[in-house]
Nucleic acid binder design. Structure first.
Length: 210
DNA sequence: TCATTAACACGGG
DNA sequence: CCCGTGTTAATGA
């Protein structure tokens, strides 16, 4: 575990902190599609993502989903930090976008380290900062952009995260993530294909314009 | 005008 | 056949 940890976080944290993480963190491996954090559950651990990608979703009262953002290697989840510090239930759902590996850190340790390690403190603040920025981007996208631009952005995000321009997904699943209907997704995907930005196959979309 | 819903036909696995 | 896809008509915001 130490090797993987050092690869992902060695440039950020000093050896001493890495050793503490190794000592009290627990390593988890999940498969794509697995649910990691459920809405309403109490969160007592902070995830540090080693590899893969996690999708963070919000859910409305009807049970409809809306994608908030993705977490990648080297990221942690600001919403989780929030829940842990505030001792409140989770406001979000976390689902593995790809097969992922991460380390869970107990809240007490994470609080202790904030005082003990400057690098950790920076990491936590930087995470808050980048998460907040991404949230604002997402809000802008939802509030001011048309669905076709939103869809394109979504496709580019997923292509980037998977490290491949090919996205395995049905139109229906995309519609759920973007909180719209499949008819619209199908129509807009067709339009994007006409514009030469993507190519469509069954169950797969290739992003050409990155 | 544009999204949603329902309905239908096409075609690949 | 079943499922994903592409389209259309009706309806409503």
């Amino acid at each position: 575990m130490f090797k993987e940890l050092e690869e992902a976080y060695g440039f950020l944290f000093e050896d001493e902190l890495l050793k503490e993480i190794e000592a009290c963190g627990s390593l988890h491996r999940v498969q794509a599609g697995e649910r990691i954090i459920e809405i309403g559950s109490y969160v007592k651990h902070i995830p540090l993502l080693i590899s893969g990608a996690i999708k963070i979703l919000r859910e409305d009262k009807e049970g409809d989903e809306l994608l908030l953002y993705f977490i990648e290697r080297g990221d942690t989840c600001a919403m989780t930090l929030n829940c842990c510090l505030g001792q409140t239930k989770s406001e979000i759902r976390a689902v593995a976008e790809t097969d992922s590996v991460f380390i869970m850190i107990p809240v007490e340790k994470m609080e202790e380290w904030v005082g003990k390690y400057k690098t950790w403190r920076h990491f936590v603040f930087a995470s808050y900062h980048s998460r907040l920025k991404e949230m604002l981007d997402t809000i802008d996208t939802i509030a001011f952009m048309n669905m076709d631009e939103r869809l394109m952005r979504y496709l580019q995000d997923r292509a980037k995260i998977n490290g491949s321009p090919s996205i395995q997904s049905t139109h229906q699943q995309i519609a759920y993530d973007l909180h719209t209907s499949r008819v619209v997704v199908s129509r807009l995907l067709k339009k994007l294909e006409m514009e030469g930005k993507i190519s469509l196959q069954r169950n797969q979309i290739d992003v050409l314009d990155l």
